[in-house]
C-alpha cells in the first residue's frame, strides 16, 4: 500500500516536472492547441457567447497568436482564471499565455518572473456607484463599503488611495467580476472599483446602466497586457511580435478585409511586404510560417478592428479610443518597426 502511494506520488511529480523545461512553442505545436488564460467572464474582453464560443478583446489576442503559430484561430483552449489563480496557472505551465486584463507592474515582471509582451489597453482604476447614492467624487466615500477583486493591483491602489486621503472604507473581497456584480446590485457594497474599462463593461450588462455612474477620479495607471513565463525568450518574442503585428497592421492600413489581397502580390510599401511575408524572412526568424502575420490579422482583424468590434463606441460597452488610439492620432498605441 505504502509503495503504491509512493509510486503514485512519483508519477504525479514526474508529470509536473516536465513542465518548466521544454520550449513553449514546441509544446504548443505538439499539442495542436494554444492554452490561453482569460477572465471568468468580463463583457467585451473575454466572455463566452450563447454558443459557448469565447469572444472579446483579450480573446482576440489569443486567437491571433493561435493563428500565427498554428494557422488556426480556433485552435485555442480557453482557461478561465480568477485574480488569484491566474499567476499560478501561468507559472505552473497550465496556460501558455495569460490575456486577462492584467496590469504590468515591476514586481510582477521582475519578482513574480513573468514577461509582459506589450500593452493592449492603457487603463486606470475607477469607481462605480449608484446614482441614488448622491456621490460625485471618490473623496466623499469615507466609510463606504467597497467591492474589490482580491489578488489584483486595484486592491493595493484602493488601500493607498484611502490611506493617502485619510478616509476609511470597508473592503468586501470577491473572487470574480460576476460575483462583484451580484453583490453590487444587491447593495451589499456601495461602490465597485476595478479598471475603468472593466467598470464600463460591467455596467453595460446591467438592466439599467443609466442608474449607475463612474466617478471622475482615475486613481492609478493600469497598463493591461498579455504576459508569458519568464525565461522562454523565443515564445515571448512570438507573442510580443504577434501583438505588434496587429498594432502595425492598423497603422499600415492592413485590415482583415484586405489582408489576403495585400499579401497576394508585393505592394509598394516594403514594411507591409515584410509584415505579410512577401519580402524578407521575418516569419522564419520567429520559427513560424512566412504567412504568420497574415493569419494573425485575418483571425480577428487588426488592433483597431478588434477594439471597435469588442469594446468600441459602437458596442454597448462604448469605450472611446482615448489613450488607446494609435500614436499618429495622439494615443499611446505604437509598434516598433518590422525590419
Amino acid at each position: 500500500m505504502k509503495k503504491t502511494v509512493l509510486f503514485g506520488a512519483l508519477t504525479v511529480t514526474g508529470l509536473v516536472a516536465g513542465v518548466a523545461s521544454a520550449a513553449t512553442l514546441d509544446d504548443v505545436k505538439a499539442r495542436g492547441t494554444l492554452n490561453c488564460g482569460v477572465s471568468t467572464g468580463l463583457a467585451g474582453f473575454s466572455v463566452p457567447d450563447a454558443n459557448g464560443v469565447w469572444k472579446g478583446f483579450d480573446v482576440g489576442v489569443c486567437r491571433a497568436l493561435a493563428a500565427a503559430v498554428l494557422g488556426d484561430p480556433m485552435a485555442v483552449e480557453f482557461v478561465p482564471t480568477t485574480g488569484q489563480t491566474r499567476f499560478t496557472a501561468l507559472a505552473s505551465g497550465e496556460i501558455d499565455i495569460l490575456a486577462r486584463n492584467t496590469t504590468w507592474t515591476f514586481s510582477r515582471d521582475v519578482d513574480l518572473k513573468f514577461d509582459f509582451v506589450g500593452v493592449n489597453y492603457y487603463d486606470g482604476q475607477g469607481f462605480m456607484v449608484p446614482k441614488a447614492l448622491g456621490v460625485s467624487s471618490a473623496k466623499e466615500l469615507d466609510g463606504a463599503t467597497v467591492c474589490i477583486q482580491t489578488g489584483t493591483t486595484t486592491e493595493l491602489n484602493l488601500a493607498d488611495f484611502f490611506r493617502t486621503n485619510n478616509i476609511s472604507y470597508e473592503p468586501v473581497p470577491i473572487e470574480t467580476n460576476a460575483e462583484a456584480q451580484q453583490q453590487y446590485l444587491a447593495g451589499a457594497c456601495d461602490v465597485y472599483t476595478t479598471d475603468a474599462s472593466g467598470l464600463a463593461a460591467t455596467r453595460a450588462t446591467f438592466e439599467n446602466p443609466g442608474d449607475h455612474i463612474l466617478l471622475p477620479e482615475i486613481i492609478s495607471k493600469e497598463p493591461l497586457g498579455p504576459l508569458v513565463r519568464h525565461g522562454d525568450n523565443e515564445w515571448a518574442d512570438i507573442t510580443r511580435w504577434t501583438l505588434n503585428a496587429l498594432i502595425a497592421a492598423e497603422e499600415l492600413g492592413v485590415t482583415s478585409a484586405n489582408v489576403a489581397e495585400l499579401a497576394a502580390a508585393p505592394t509598394d510599401n516594403p514594411e507591409i511586404n515584410r509584415l505579410l511575408g512577401s519580402e524578407g524572412e521575418l516569419g522564419a526568424m520567429l520559427g513560424l510560417a512566412p504567412n504568420w502575420a497574415l493569419n494573425a490579422i485575418a483571425a480577428g482583424g487588426n488592433y483597431g478592428e478588434l477594439f471597435e468590434q469588442n469594446i468600441g463606441e459602437s458596442t454597448p460597452i462604448g469605450l472611446a479610443r482615448g489613450l488607446n488610439a494609435k500614436w499618429t492620432e495622439g494615443g499611446l498605441i505604437y509598434s516598433p518597426p518590422f525590419r
Binding site: 488569484q84 499560478t88 514586481s107 510582477r108 519578482d111 518572473k113 482580491t150 489578488g151 493595493l156
Partner: peptide, 13 residues
C-alpha cells in the same frame, strides 16, 4: 487561507 494563502501568495509570488 484568504490572507496568507490568497492575497499574500498572489502579491508576492
Amino acid at each position: 487561507r484568504a490572507t496568507l494563502g490568497g492575497i499574500t501568495i498572489n502579491q508576492t509570488g
